[in-house]
Nucleic acid binder design. Structure first.
Length: 204
DNA sequence: CCCTGATTCGC
DNA sequence: GCGAATCAGG
């Protein structure tokens, strides 16, 4: 596979959308995430999406000064590689002012309260009285077995159902094996995806 | 162990 | 220019 204009375009788009290198590689096909990352760097768009610098000036401006000299392939000791070449600051002025302002979900209909963080939209949290007793019992049971993963520990195959109050330290994600193609484990899929029939006519 | 991006350097 | 190997880290 080669980097055709089209593929590069897809790469740029997905990267700016915050997609991971592996996700992009998977989408493109025929390339590994390493290839994607390598290309991203060559294109000079390593710091994606650009964020409000004014807001968070990132204190640690210089943090990568020396990483291992990179172990030579299979050579005893040949040349001290003139690494000094990389001295020039990488991409000083990131000119990407044209890209769209990163697609933002629009589910914040109430401009009232700015609500804070939540890096990701939380799944629906149906109130207890609209969940079937069976599903509810199942969930309570499962939540005792939750792996209690942190955000960073979630993968494509772990249940992403949040448990607890995000504002406290008693908050974690279910983490049990998720249903193929679903974001949650079996029990949580049960409460997250309810058939219309069971939700209908909840006298009120 | 799962995953992430960053970097180096032989090709 | 490309990307595997590797590093560093959540």
């Amino acid at each position: 596979m080669s980097w055709t204009d089209e593929r590069v375009e897809t790469l740029k788009r997905m990267w700016s959308e915050g997609q991971s290198a592996s996700a992009i590689a998977k989408e493109l096909g025929g390339v590994t995430r390493n290839a994607v990352i390598g290309k991203v760097h060559r294109l000079g768009l390593s710091n994606r999406g650009d964020e409000a610098e004014a807001a968070a000036p990132e204190p640690a401006a210089e943090k990568r000064a020396e990483r291992k000299p990179a172990p030579a392939r299979a050579e005893p000791a040949a040349e001290p590689a003139p690494a000094a070449a990389a001295a020039t600051d990488e991409a000083e002025a990131a000119e990407a002012a044209e890209a769209e302002p990163a697609a933002q979900p629009v589910f914040t209909p109430v401009p009232r309260r700015p609500i804070v963080p939540a890096g990701q939209p939380l799944p629906p949290q149906p109130s207890a009285n609209e969940i079937s007793p069976e599903a509810l019992a199942s969930v309570r049971e499962v939540e005792k077995k939750a792996r209690k993963l942190t955000l960073m520990e979630l993968t494509e195959r772990t249940c992403k159902w949040p448990i607890g109050d995000p504002a406290t330290d008693r908050f974690w994600f279910c983490g049990l094996p998720s249903q193929a193609g679903k974001p949650y484990c079996e029990a949580h899929v049960g409460v997250a995806f309810q058939p219309m029939s069971s939700r209908r006519d909840r006298r009120r």
